[in-house]
Design a protein around this nucleic acid. Structure first.
Lengths: 337, 337
DNA sequence: AATTTTTATGCAAACGTTTTCGCGACAAAA
DNA sequence: TTTTGTCGCGAAAACGTTTGCATAAAAATT
């Protein structure tokens, strides 16, 4: 009765038929008579039968599990993508095993190993900052299991990838500054190791050169959290030629920047305009003035990643180097003219 | 070679020994000679053997998987707990399947069913707002698999639970107001269906009655997000007797409240003090003035939940009604005197 | 030398499925 | 009547492990 879960054996025994018949009946196989199917279905619900996904997995070499490796779940962006992955996977009968690398290369490697051991049917990864060697990803592919990169992608490994318009987003931001008469645009850039940081930097640079504005190295400084955003902005304000606009690599950095501007008595956006990146709902709502930002479709990126992954499960050549780029949007609020 | 993963069969074949010997060798069984063990280990790494957790799971009736059901992953608190769960589970050789209920009772039920089907070894759940019927949780227990409630616990089902000092946190907040001369303390309370909201309300109420301050119904209003926090605070400010302190059920509500206060030109904390709940690092950093709040140890709660869960895996009577209460702390910043 | 004990290994069953193959029954066609 | 075909079902193998039991060889004891 309550001794463990019921199996198809129990159903078979109760109905005095074979397990194969039960299995087929539950899968609505045409060989089985309607009468038998009905009986099986009834007995199944009487016993509260739940198929054992482990046994199924073993038999069909398919775990119906996908792995997700992200740097840190607590970042709003990543938990948003996770939400998208989870929703789509669930809708297709899959489940998600989450791992966080904590931005550590070593943990990323052990995560990969663990997921492979769990025989996940596919893996989505957002690469850690620390990672410069990518053999563990190639290893996944050698095993023949589909791999999709999301956001923090990896050009060294040929795999489907999902990103958003980092370059275009940055371009839009800088272009917006220019079109409102700003010429001294500073950029709080992210770590060089991250492709997304480079893309955002490039979008910014290309706008400058398009408008024949010489690049000024003092205007391009590294900052990727609240404190460094604050600190570096203070330094920007000490420059002889102060910037009249600041484009930050992410929202929390922009928030730090705003704090500095406010403390030093600059008016935003009149004296200096600010645009962030990510459109974090909490941050953009809480800053005063409200932060303008580039919206990044995190949920859709997760969903799309899961979709591309599942599409490649069970196919012969599962690694098309297809890159899907999702749209970003400039959300104007109060830190821009 | 690269055709699928290597199995113990492959190792056995290569070494011309039996699979049982290989299995035992890999588990360092004392019956096996050192020489054989060494050979097996070498061949295993040569073939890059990874144990098939699915097969293992089937054989030992143990998936080394735990399920986690939370209302919404994107909430900072929940992603923090997830992080704790993941870290601890990983350290013990377990993995985590995440499900979100999206605050829906129906999805919670299907989540439970899916996790049971996946034969997870245990389940941690933070109950959805909508849930009033708890039979799906009892069902988990009938199946004999350990269940732990976390934060959003459920008194109707006897199971180990992990919470934080919601009552005490609220008590500290209100007590702090009182000790600084405030008497007209308002409370932006959460939904009645949630025990944590009730606890926070009770802490607040008990402080009032301890100090013989009559409870005023106009001071206790429902609000649990930015907009309602903002709106309800505006209404509080329309009262004949305006409050001189506001305790909010969570940080984002407190932030909404602050926004209203600021717009109406009230000085915080001089005219009105504010304390939130949760100590969200982003929110408390961004509000001006910086929000005082009750720190809630999300990471530790997740870790502790995982720990209690694993402790109860494989024991005869896995449902002691043990409630672990983790400490909250009053973090004073700039919205309090 | 004969017996017992120890050591190291193999056989086979089991976990819960799915699926290939085959078979008997019965109906339709020859 | 024989052949062919369809229908409904069962037997058994397989997926990759673990483990109780048996056993052969070697070592220790009598």
């Amino acid at each position: 009765m309550s001794k463990g879960q019921a199996t198809i054996k129990d159903i078979a025994k109760a109905l005095r038929i074979s397990v194969s018949t039960v299995s087929r009946a539950l899968h609505d196989h045409p060989d089985i008579s309607e009468k038998t199917k009905k009986a099986v279905r009834e007995e199944a619900r009487r016993l509260d039968y739940q198929p054992n996904l482990i046994a199924q997995g073993l038999r069909q070499q398919k775990s119906h599990l996908i792995g997700l490796i992200v740097p840190e779940i607590v970042h709003h962006f990543f938990s948003t993508t996770l939400s998208g992955v989870e929703d789509f996977a669930n809708s297709q009968g899959y489940h998600v095993m989450v791992c966080q690398s904590n931005e550590s290369y070593e943990r990323e490697k052990t995560n990969v190993k663990a997921l492979l051991s769990s025989r996940v049917d596919g893996i989505i990864v957002s690469v850690s900052k620390e990672t410069t060697d990518f053999s563990h990803f190639k290893h996944i592919q050698k095993r023949g299991i589909p791999l999709v990169f999301m956001d923090r992608i990896c050009n060294e490994v040929k795999a489907p990838s999902v990103v958003c318009q980092d370059y275009e987003g940055a371009y839009m931001a800088a272009e917006h500054f220019i079109s409102h008469g700003r010429r001294r645009i500073a950029h709080l850039r992210g770590p060089k190791s991250l492709l997304i940081s480079k893309q955002r930097l490039n979008g910014y640079l290309d706008v400058l050169s398009k408008h024949r504005i010489p690049k000024k190295d003092e205007y391009i400084v590294f900052a990727s959290d609240f404190e460094s955003g604050y600190r570096e902005t203070l330094r920007l304000l000490d420059l002889h030629e102060k910037p009249d606009a600041i484009f930050a690599v992410n929202d929390i950095t922009a928030a730090g920047s705003l704090r500095a501007l406010q403390e030093k008595g600059f008016r935003v956006p009149e004296d200096i305009s600010v645009i962030g990146f990510g459109d974090d709902p909490v941050i953009t709502k809480l800053t005063v003035p409200k932060l303008s930002s580039i919206y990044q479709p995190g949920y859709e990126m997760g969903k799309m990643s899961a979709q591309m992954l599942l599409k490649n499960i069970g196919v012969q050549e599962p690694f098309p180097h297809e890159i899907r780029v999702l749209k970003t949007e400039l959300k104007l609020r109060e830190t821009t003219l």
